[in-house]
């Protein structure tokens, strides 16, 4: 297996406060990798840094063998790294259609874009019903679907998902995790961030446990799901 994404000794600070303190992780081609950890552990900070929204203080980020740390956000997207951010962050005054168009902002392959549009609308039929509705007027679940769909419109090689199940009703949570598996079946590698550790460990191949900016544990997701410390801290066992 070849490493698609490799993060080494990453440190990220807000002002003088270190939020990520030397994190290393790899994501291989075709995997679902999950990064779990409690609120404030530094998960979103890590993802935002990978996407170029924050600059690392130290460490390297390599994507397909090329250093991307310190590059600007739009350069990173153009390499095939697309993120569905925490809190959805869809464009509220734009329709579903316009949001999806923006997901494909950097692409010029008209046919490919239209094919992907059909693909994500098949994945989330609800979005087809809401196609001309403004994002800001949709329910939380619909907005979350839109955020994931929009990220997929960028034709990602690696899809970064930051808490896609946050604040959703249980039925919708199940639906989102089923969709994540379907997305992987379409050949997209996924790095998934979750507070819902149980569900994340179920869909993921490998997992990292983050605590106060440091990786505490890592391994096969199925092994971690059985681990006593993990169970105790994150699975409410």
């Amino acid at each position: 297996m070849s490493a698609l994404l490799e993060v080494k000794d990453l440190q990220v600070a807000y002002g003088s406060i270190l939020a990520v303190k030397g994190l290393s992780l790899t994501v291989n081609q075709g995997e679902i990798v999950t990064l779990i950890g409690s609120n404030g552990a530094g998960k979103s900070t890590t993802l935002r840094t990978i996407s170029g929204l924050l600059k690392p203080k130290a460490g390297t980020i390599t994507f397909e063998g090329e250093r991307i740390d310190g590059k600007s956000g739009h350069d990173i997207v153009s390499k095939g790294l697309c993120q569905s951010p925490e809190g959805r962050r869809i464009f509220p005054r734009m329709s579903v259609r316009e949001n999806l168009d923006l997901g494909a902002f950097l692409r010029n392959d008209k046919d490919g874009i239209e094919a992907d549009r059909e693909r994500v609308l098949d994945l989330f039929p609800r979005l087809r019903e809401r196609y001309e509705q403004k994002g800001g007027t949709m329910s939380g679940g619909e907005q979350q679907m839109l955020a994931v769909a929009r990220a997929m419109m960028g034709a990602p090689k690696l899809l970064l998902l930051d808490e896609p199940s946050m604040g959703l009703a249980p039925v919708l949570v199940d639906m989102i995790f089923e969709t994540i598996i379907k997305i992987r079946e379409q050949g997209i590698t996924i790095l998934l961030i979750e507070q819902n550790a149980a569900a994340a460990l179920e869909v993921a191949d490998r997992a990292y446990v983050l605590e106060s900016g440091l990786i505490k544990m890592s391994g096969k997701a199925s092994d971690l799901a059985k681990d006593e410390a993990v169970t105790k801290a994150y699975l409410g066992g």
Partner: peptide, 12 residues
């Protein structure tokens, strides 16, 4: 509407 979201779309 949202600068960071715009960045994530690849907008400069």
């Amino acid at each position: 509407q949202d600068q960071d979201a715009a960045r994530l779309m690849g907008i400069n």
